[in-house]
Amino acid sequence: MSVAMSLLAMIAQGPRYGYELRAEFDRRTSARWPLNIGQVYKTLDRLEREGLVEKRSGTDAEGHVFYTVTAAGVAASSVWIQQADPVPTRARDDLAIKVAIAVTLPGVDVTALLRAQRREAITRLQQLTHESGGEPVRTAQDLASRIVSDALLIEAETQLRWLDQVSDRVRDAIARGISLAIPFDTERPRRGRPRANRSTDPTDIPGGKNNDD
């Protein structure tokens, strides 16, 4: 989606050809997610089928085929570039699941897990910092490059903050005498969904079809 709309937004500013679009996309995103030319042409075909761009008949002296924007393409491009994207919500956070399980199972060394994960996150941050060079922004090109690398850096940083928070919460819980392990329920659930009184699922009405038999 963002690739197609990026190409469309560039065509909306004037006729462009495939290799040019690929080079401009890579330049503006620091080749962080490089496009191959096949992908560019497939995307252009799609934009054409959707009536957002048109292929010009004929080529220039070098044989480039140019694409131009349609009125519908201008409208679509301006909506995309001005509209907020939804904040991503992960369907599942695998690491959060792992840590929650590790903390609440008896006899698991959570500290070791948290340390290992911190190491991963810091190593990632070091790699990204090293790649981005951390040079101050002097040109629009530098700016584009930092915009992309900041997005990745902040993601790794956020994971570290979360890990710090987990450590603080675990420490605090221990200090307040809370036993971390959740004991296994001696009354084992039978077939079907968990019992309704434990559920936060509004469809899980007592006496309803999801209840224990």
Partner: peptide
Amino acid sequence: ARLAAWADRVLTLEDGHLYAT
């Protein structure tokens, strides 16, 4: 952590204990 990423080595202190990260 953004600044720590500039370091050659990152160490972590926990309750006075130092370990390599």
